[in-house]
């Protein structure tokens, strides 16, 4: 049977290892080199606004974008939906909007406090969307699944991409350390901004159509956002 070293022994070894690490003292020349490199460009800067202000900015864009799109888009799908369907989709979009706006705010500020991992937020929202589409909408396929589906996916991409660009413009000041996470969070917020408007104008309110052409496109877009963020570094 394999022995396991007790915790105190691991702790002792780690402390000894930490103590053996090179000291951090810096030479006066190195300090001067750093100071001389920075001083010519030392100008006053305005700190980023408080986290609450940044959150409000993202959430207002999300709300205004969603409401604006609903106002200008065809509402044929809205008349087909029951109050429970409208309420559930609105609720999940609002929850996703709040969580993602909070996450983006934390991601754009180095050293900010993070209350939830992005992967947890996306998993929760994904499960929510799946549960709503799968339980509140009928499981049937009417007409041509592909011919009726791809225009919805195209519409989602056409709206979500510019929305993500607008959100990026707001985030860019703090996005010096642009990462896959920030990019995925921005794309996810843009995607959720589109979900409700797309739903209100879609004529094919069946679970397979919604899961494949609406939710599936969203997953692909968020993945692409993450990849672009990772390569943009």
């Amino acid at each position: 049977m394999q022995d396991e070293t007790p915790d105190w022994e691991v702790e002792r070894r780690l402390d000894a290892w930490a103590a053996s690490q090179p000291p951090g003292g810096i030479s006066p020349e190195l300090a001067r080199r750093v100071q001389d490199a920075l001083k010519p460009s030392l100008t006053p800067v305005k700190p980023l606004p408080p986290q609450s202000t940044l959150f409000a900015a993202f959430f207002v864009i999300f709300l205004a974008g969603s409401a604006g799109l609903i106002a200008i888009m065809n509402k044929s799908g809205l008349h087909e939906m029951t109050p429970a369907q409208i309420g559930a989709v609105t609720l999940i979009c609002a929850a996703a909007g709040i969580l993602l706006a909070l996450k983006i705010t934390a991601e754009m500020i180095p050293g900010a406090k993070h209350n939830m991992q992005l992967v947890s937020i996306l998993t929760l929202c994904g499960i929510g969307v799946f549960a709503i589409f799968a339980t509140l909408f009928p499981w049937e396929i009417r007409g041509d699944f592909v011919a009726e589906g791809w225009p919805c996916a195209l519409r989602e991409i056409t709206i979500a991409v510019p929305a993500a660009v607008v959100l990026w413009l707001v985030a860019r000041r703090g996005a010096f350390f642009a990462s896959a996470r920030l990019s995925a969070a921005l794309t996810a917020l843009a995607v959720f901004l589109v979900v409700l408007p797309l739903q209100t104008q879609c004529m094919f309110l069946q679970a397979p159509h919604l899961l494949v052409w609406h939710a599936g496109t969203a997953v692909v877009l968020i993945g692409l956002g993450a990849v672009i963020g990772a390569y943009a570094r």
């Binding site: 920075l38 460009s41 030392l42 800067v45 305005k46 700190p47 980023l48 408080p50 986290q51 754009m108 500020i109 180095p110 050293g111 900010a112 000041r173 703090g174 010096f176 350390f177």
Partner: peptide, 11 residues
Amino acid sequence: HRSRDTYRASE
């Protein structure tokens, strides 16, 4: 230096 504006005194 380039990102010093992202620091907020409350943190």
